[in-house]
Nucleic acid binder design. Structure first.
Lengths: 256, 256
DNA sequence: GTTCCGGATTGATTGAAGTCAAGTAGGCGC
DNA sequence: GCGCCTACTTGACTTCAATCAATCCGGAAC
């Protein structure tokens, strides 16, 4: 593939590393923020750390970041955009495992089998930071803080994976999803009341193990009840308390 | 509480550390086996490692090992017996999160919040190894192999937590559960065809997000179809292939 | 503007599993 | 042995969400 394509269609993996001076803007909300940003680590360590981080992208909506069974070598932090991970079951139906918004980390579940256990695709124009896991682990050998960060991130992912286990009504699941999404955006300084649900209804439905029609009906019901206002993919939570009450059936498993 | 009770009712936490020379028997199947057993580590490291491992128990069936929100300091490896972890939702209903059979590790999901995110109780007379996580992490700082083991175990737990996510029929879920349980027993050298399901039907039901009645009916159906034979809690898989076909709907997410 | 298309919504019907209620069977203490 | 208690099973009925089928709507291309 030629390098002379437009920026939008070139192979995202071939994009040159960029230093666009946006560390403040992006890295401050990244889960690795405290690792990458110059505080607490020696200049030497930081230099080595920066050598093992690579900016990749942009990926356009629909482009694959990794495929199930690809050999594992790196985890990815979302800098901008949106990523979903999913598997395909034996009947060809897609099961969405997670959505990743800027600041969140993808791929820690691939460490053990040394292969990615799922597929990851961009749902929107997406920029990523690629962290070589082997190099990270080596560095963690010398930096207790980094080791601890990795342990914590992985531990958190266990709890996150357990989220929603149990049989809950469609309304409870969706309420929990809305609140969770708002909370994650709020971490980056956005409103937790007024936000965008940038993924397709079908993907939300798959993630919650519901039919798209059911999601539609739940949205209708929440609108009718005045609990939230939906306009296309925009959401405004009018009665967060009502949502919290609905979602309270779902245990939180140590997620903040 | 007096130390003069019978062995069976004394506080399990007060049991003195034992060196019953059973390392070969128990530790060889433990997930930490290669860590605890003298291979690849210096004598010094091993001594320090053994200092941070404590044998606890026996816990009798029904006894609590830790409670949700207890401050986290250690992970536990099951030496003998059976443990279940669970949370209680806001309506007082129990959601079982996992069962742990000898050789398996409990508590890695507690690292991040530094509190246990669930309860753990013994379902049978249970012996545990208690590993101080802080001490482990310190040691991992010097032993790359130990650090890698911890990363792998945590990564595996992420995939394990994701198991069964998706909407599957009661029969598919139960078939997957049977095969998974057999596989885990097989790791310890037991038969994967002929084994015991030592937990209550209610607990299996909760784990699979089914009603106990539904589990009963699925068992009945599998019996009628000649797929497996059930006698009380004993199981014999007569047509493992049929089970595998049923369970094939559930993606395996990198579990062996 | 008009057309086309895919995602989203709505309605009608079905079906799998939950609930409720009753009955059975082991295991244990006496 | 007997009774009791708990776990499990079975049957009848209900319900929530899936499925099937028909629109609807908004955005992109022309």
């Amino acid at each position: 593939m030629s390098q002379l394509h437009t920026a939008d269609t070139r192979d995202p993996w071939q994009a040159p590393p960029v230093d666009d001076g946006d560390a403040e803007r992006f890295c401050s909300t990244c889960v690795f923020g405290r690792v990458c940003m110059p505080q607490g680590f020696s200049k030497d360590a930081l230099n080595r750390l920066h050598c093992l981080i690579e900016h990749v992208g942009p990926f356009q909506a629909g482009q694959t970041i990794f495929r199930i069974n690809d050999p594992f070598s790196a985890v990815f932090s979302v800098r901008a955009g949106l990523v979903k991970t999913f598997v395909i079951d034996d009947k060809g139906r897609e099961q969405v495992l997670g959505f990743y918004t800027p600041g969140e980390l993808i791929g820690l579940d691939a460490v053990y089998p040394s292969r990615y256990p799922c597929n990851a695709v961009a749902l929107d124009t997406t920029l990523l930071c690629r962290f070589s896991f082997g190099a990270m682990a080596n560095l963690a050998q010398e930096l207790p803080g980094l080791q601890q960060t990795l342990f914590q991130l992985m531990s958190k992912d266990i709890s996150a994976a357990l989220w929603g286990k149990g049989d809950y009504s469609a309304e409870e699941k969706f309420a929990g999803f809305l609140l969770d999404w708002g909370r994650r955006l709020a971490r980056r300084g956005f409103s937790a009341r007024n936000f965008n649900l940038p993924m397709a209804r079908t993907d939300i439905a798959s993630f919650l193990s519901l039919a798209p029609e059911t999601v539609s009906r739940v949205i209708r019901k929440l609108s009718d009840d005045g609990v939230a206002r939906f306009d296309r993919r925009e959401v405004e939570l009018l009665k967060p308390e009502a949502l919290r009450k609905l979602a309270s059936a779902i245990p939180n498993l140590g997620l903040d």
